[in-house]
Amino acid sequence: MENIDTKLREEAKRLLLEKRVDVIVGYEQGTLPLTATPCFITTPEEADKLVWNNLCTQNLAKYVHDLIIAHKNSQKRVKPEDRKKKVIGVVARGCTTRSLIIHLQERQYDRDSVYIIGVPCDGYIDGKGLKVAVGGADISEGSLDGGQIKMKTSDGDKTVALKDVLADNCKTCRFNNPIISDVMIGQNAPAMNPDAEYNDVKEFEGKSIEERWAYFTKEMEKCIRCYACRQACPSCYCPTCFVEQSQPQWVGIGEDPSDTQVFQLMRLFHMVGRCVDCGSCISVCPMGVDLRKFLKKLDKDCFEFFGNRAGSNMEDMPPLGKYDEHHDKGDFVFNP
């Protein structure tokens, strides 16, 4: 890992020095033990902050989009001939590149507006899982050592195997290495366990409609509509989210549970063919709503009905973006 950090910093410095990029979005060490946090590097000097390890949780594509759109908006007030282009460098693992692909397919920015620094990924630690693994104790210090996480906690020293506390999405990840990149740091990481990708979903599908509905209702009852999931999601980039739209007001702002259901249903619907299973929404959810169950079900359906895996390559558009009057099969209408 040390090796990767070094290479990453060198590459970042080079890009900034050569003015290939205006900013690099990457991760730096977090202020709390065993955490990493996104950072924005604009000078070669800052590049040494960059880290890349199993603590890097967030999908940085979200920040790429934000930066580019903010820049575009700022340029609207500039005379066309004076407008400047901004290039964003981004440290990207598999799921991040999938999100970038979706952005590109959805014409959010040009390919040359983003410089992708690919990094191999063997999964990130699920913070909540780690907490559980240490029996809820507060962690005061910690370090990653090969496949082990060594910690000082309020309960004393603890060691946990990394593979045991990886995030669910990482455990069965199919795309842990970058799909597209401008430069690749290090070698591709070994494959995870994609064969088990839909195990949970299959089990869920086996249940009765009533059981599934009950589960949905139960999970939705937890939701406090803080919209953290949406904020974290790289695919949620609408200028104005439907929950904030009036004329018409799509979702009530009161406490009616059905409004929460409507919000989540519609957000889930918007994720069909667009969710890269980066786990951002899960990691930020303060209430621990099992969003992934539903997202994964939709992901499975999307693959089965339309042969599409979100952002798996530049050419394969999401289902709604590849409508073909003459060749689409009509049998996607099915019984639940």
Partner: peptide, 10 residues
């Protein structure tokens, strides 16, 4: 709009 269906049910 898929919303219509959801809203109708709601």
């Amino acid at each position: 709009n898929p919303f219509y269906l959801v809203k109708a049910l709601q």
